Simulated assay, not measured.
Amino acid sequence: MATFKGPAFRLNNGIEMPGFGLGVFRSEPEKTVAAVQSALAHGYRLIDTAAAYMNEQQVGEGIRASGVPREDIFVTTKVWMTDYGYDRTLHAFDRSLRKLGLDYLDLYLTHWPVPSAFDETVASYKAAMKLLAEGRVRAIGVCNFSSSHLRNLIEQTGHIPAVNQIEVHPFFIQSDLREADEALGIITQAWSPIGGIKRDGEKAKASGKVLDPLSHPSVVQLATKYTRSPAQIILRWQIQIGTCPIPKSVRPERIAENIDIFDFSLAADEVRAISALDTGERGGPDPELVSPQTFPLTTHD
């Protein structure tokens, strides 16, 4: 069984989190079990899911089938906006834990800020604080929070999130937000770290502005130089700018390829060249506009 050879982050409460993981956003349930097993066999030790992904049960099955001890795996899930509010979040946590088949979580995240109902967002986070205090989760954090959202949350709760999971890829590097996270002692986790959201996302398809970092000449040239895939070049860039990338795949060969990035490094000017591809345009939703109304999804069975 492979052991994790990548970096680790020490979170602001002292907990150690692997610096690379498998994301299962929209991974079909019937493929998720095998994907999680494959990832753990290839040395992944962080698995990131969410109530809204509708595959928590299969993630749990993959963990149990892997043979890797539970204490060696860092499991993350997220509460969805329709479950915001103090009591609703506590119930949602119990439901996620039941689906995963686990008796604790390593990281519990608030999936989006809801600026139009931020009091509910805060109440949800306070519920997560209760779960943290009870030892039912080892760390808590947020997703898609801007620096102003973070300041507002911290002012109202007195608690600094351990992680802020945000869209980061070569076409949207979010350097100011990453710097704000770092200044607060928050680890930045990168979703869509290879930039698939700019290629396959609903916004890209609707606008006709389909972009793919994997085919950009700067990335392709570096892939040729290092005899690596373009995806490996981008994921190596993520490591060197200090994020924790969580690429999604259900293909065993791609899962193995994605984590095989810890035996080479990009030069500083190469890292800067990839960062210079930033367009300043996100591929995913604008956190200022997100609400349960914009994503009418229920996570209940």
Rank of each mutant, 00 (worst) to 15 (best):
A35N: 05
Q37K: 15
P69C: 05
T89H: 08
P69V: 08
Y86K: 00
V36P: 14
I73M: 02
I73D: 09
A51Y: 02
G62M: 05
R70V: 12
G43E: 04
D48R: 06
G85M: 02
F93M: 06
Q57G: 04
L40Y: 01
V59H: 07
Q57Y: 10
G67K: 06
A34L: 13
W80V: 03
G85Y: 00
H42K: 14
V59L: 09
H42Y: 09
T76Y: 09
F93E: 07
Q37I: 09
E28I: 11
T49D: 09
M81Q: 15
V75Y: 03
A92M: 04
D72A: 15
Q37D: 03
V33K: 12
S66V: 05
G85C: 00
S38Q: 14
K31N: 15
P29Y: 13
V33M: 04
A35D: 08
I63H: 11
H91C: 02
G85A: 04
V33S: 03
I47D: 10
E71F: 05
Q58G: 13
T82F: 08
K78P: 06
T82L: 05
N55V: 12
I47H: 11
G43A: 03
V79Q: 02
A50P: 00
E28F: 13
G67Y: 07
T82E: 15
A41I: 05
T49H: 06
F74I: 03
A51C: 04
Y53R: 12
W80T: 00
K78M: 11
I63E: 12
H91V: 01
Y44F: 14
Y86C: 00
A34H: 13
A65E: 15
T49E: 06
H42E: 15
V68A: 11
Q58W: 12
V33W: 03
F74R: 07
R70F: 10
Q37L: 04
F74E: 07
A65C: 07
G67C: 05
D83K: 02
A41S: 15
W80D: 02
A65N: 13
G85Q: 01
D72I: 05
T82A: 12
S66C: 05
D87H: 00
T77W: 02
F74D: 04
F74G: 03
A34T: 10
K78T: 10
E61I: 10
R70H: 09
T77M: 01
A92Y: 00
Y53L: 10
G43S: 09
D87W: 01
P29S: 06
H91A: 10
P29A: 12
S66N: 01
A65F: 08
R70S: 03
W80E: 07
K78Y: 11
A92P: 07
I63T: 11
